[in-house]
Simulated assay, not measured.
Amino acid sequence: MKTLLDAHAVSIGDGAIALHDSVGITLRSLGTGSSRLLVAGLQRMAAGAATIALLGEIEYGLEPHRLLRFLDSMGAKDTKQPLQVFITTHSPVALRELSGDQLYVVRKVAGRHLILVAGTSDDVQSTLRAGPEAFLTKQVIVCEGPSAVGLVRGLDQF
C-alpha cells in the first residue's frame, strides 16, 4: 500500500498544470527580469524558425548586470548574428554594450521619421562607451572641466 493522489477526487482548473524549474519553482512565479531572460533564451533556441524579435523597453525589470546577459543571449556580441532584433531603450547600459553598427537613431524631422546608423568609426564607438547618454538626447552640450559640467548639471535640475 502507498499513498497517491486520487485524480477523480481532485478538482483541477485552469493553471493547475504549470512548468517548474529544476528545484520545483513554477515558471509563472518568476519575476519580470527572470521571465524576460527565459523568453530571450527560448527565442535564441527558436532562431532557426523565427529570426526576428521585437523588444520594447529592454531595460524593464532587469538590473544592469542582467541586462548585459539579456543582450548577450539575443546575440549582441556574436560575430554572426543569430537574430534580427528590434529594441527600444532609454538605458545607457544597453547602449554601452552595443557596437555603433548595431545602433540606429530615430528622429522625427519635418513630420517624417529619419533613421540613421550611429556609425562604426573609432570616435563614435568611443563616445558610445564613454558617454552613451549622448545618444539618448536631442542636443549635446559640450563642457570643459568639472565646473562647467557641474553648472550644466545644476541647470538640468532646475
Rank of each mutant, 00 (worst) to 15 (best):
L55T: 05
R28W: 10
Y104P: 11
T127K: 00
H90E: 02
V142K: 09
L103F: 07
R153L: 14
A50I: 13
F135H: 01
Q102H: 15
E133F: 00
R153A: 13
Q125M: 05
G33F: 10
V85H: 06
R66G: 05
T88C: 06
A134Q: 03
K80D: 14
V109N: 15
V85T: 13
Q84V: 11
G31A: 12
V140F: 03
A53V: 08
P92D: 14
S126T: 07
V152G: 07
R153M: 14
R107M: 00
M1W: 01
I87F: 00
G119N: 01
D156A: 10
L19S: 14
A148T: 13
F158K: 08
L42E: 14
L151A: 08
Q157S: 15
A130H: 10
I58P: 04
T120F: 06
A110C: 00
T3H: 05
A7W: 00
E133V: 11
G33M: 01
R107H: 01
L136H: 01
A94E: 12
G48K: 08
G119S: 03
G100L: 00
T89E: 05
T79Q: 03
R44W: 14
G131P: 02
V140E: 01
I58C: 10
S35W: 05
S126M: 03
A118L: 09
L98F: 03
A49S: 15
T127S: 07
G150I: 09
R66L: 04
K77G: 09
